[in-house]
Amino acid sequence: MPLPISDSFPPSARSWLAVARDGSLEQRRELAGSLTAVYREPLLRYLQAFGARLDVEDVVQDLCARILDPAFLDGWQRSERPFRLWLRTAARFELMNRIRAERRRAGAADDSLAELVESDNAQAAFDRAYAGSLIRAASDAAQRALDAQGRAHEWTLFIEHSLNGKPYAECAPPLGIPVDAARHATARVRGLVLDALRGVLSAEQVAEADVERELVALLSYLQP
């Protein structure tokens, strides 16, 4: 049975698993690319915070290449943990393994890796980057959906009104949107972004009733 990927991508965690197991090569590639867009940067920031003398980009690259490995995803499902925490732990273990291997090659004793204790800075760097990556990915998905519907100007309206604080009377007419319809257009854009976010949030074990609280938490990661 075909497994369509919607424009409100990334889809739900249940769809991830279906695509990982039975999806076509193209579907798997698209899904892996979307997940990597969300999680690659936070993983990089996280590993960089450990200050290890290793190519952390290589570690993250390898992890992203395995992101749709059914065995990897099964392990995550069994853990019942949010996906990002599962990935973060996997990245840390991979980094430790590489450091041990490096030490063995250099003839050093494989003793304590105390310097790899996860610091608050590492977690904060991860959370901040995750919050940024997630909203960028959701915004991109919403813009693609609007482009496909010939409604790209509604994204501009959303930005002008909701981010730049311009009143509808000022920003809607130049975009060819009647002022009366502007509120509905903005609500439609907001709904598209939220739909895109929900796909990832479901994998992060965020219940529908808790989405608003989660958005406040994500916003707080980006605050001083």
């Binding site: 919050a131 940024g132 909203i135 980006l222």
Partner: peptide, 18 residues
């Protein structure tokens, strides 16, 4: 870019934000 991302979250939350 962080400020813009934060502004997007704020826009989604709208008037419900503290």
């Amino acid at each position: 870019d962080d400020a813009r991302c934060a502004a997007l979250y704020a826009a989604l939350l709208g008037a419900r934000l503290p």
